[in-house]
Amino acid sequence: MNTAVRMSGVTKTFGKMRAVDDLELEVPRGGLYGFIGPNGAGKTTSIRMIMSILFPDSGEIAVLGHPSALEAKDRIGYLPEERGLYRKMKVGPFLRYVARLKGVDGPDLDGRISGWLERVGLDGVERKRCDELSKGMSQKVQFVSALIHQPDLLILDEPFSGLDPVSMRMLRDLILDEHRRGATILFSTHVMPQAEEICEHVIMVHKGRKVLDESLTAIRNRFDPRAVQFEPLVPGTRTAALRSIPEVEGVTPGEKGVEIILREGSDPAAVMRRIMDAVPAARIELSRPRLEDVFVQLVTDGASDDDAEHLRAELQDAETTGATA
């Protein structure tokens, strides 16, 4: 009963394409999970199956203790990837309609709607027609529609796409507030730094298959960090001395200072002490493994460097698109 979402051996094909392949995942109640992977990895299909909008070809899904989300829809908040509002409907009636479909009614509904709109910085838009809203405003209204009934489980599919940085931060804070309230959160994104910033735990998928399912801390520990960012105390100091440290494999110039790559198996703490002895430091920092690097490492294991570079470029493209969309 402590599991909010469980998928066991779930497979879904569209024609000849296997969108989701034998997927296993489990999100505990109260968890804040990121569901990440590049475009076309099977995230949206999986989420739609969790929501009982699509049905798997095989495998089982349980949501909030029920064999189908249909039995718990009033307790689930869902923000689909494709944003949609009734163009000619006013914001107030739209939110009232969605809230009532979710089983929220009564005299305090209007107050609840105004309160939420105020929280997302849209106070007073109740009387505006949905087609009069900007893209960002529409997205916030839809975000409110997913949260209006105070769900136990919040599923967000690419929640930040198309948002400016200020709105993005506002929604991120709201998601964290909901998490603090006790809601389980599962959100998908193809922009991995977003997941890195918010999530406690990451489920990574690629071509319909799960490639990683671990907490961020565990990921950071497991994917051995071998890079140290170093900035000398006196700018312009020669860093040649660093190369003479036996555990240092290489030194490359970075944006500020240099990036020092450690030899495999070396103890970062000990090496960092030696570095500071060799050249006084203004800043020295062990590089955390980025999810993107982890992902590339996982899916290109055994593949050529070209393949890895290609995948990395693809992810960076997606990131840029995600940030500017």
Partner: peptide
């Protein structure tokens, strides 16, 4: 899809 999140 918003509707489908609330009804079957």
């Amino acid at each position: 899809e918003v509707l489908l999140s609330a009804v079957s």
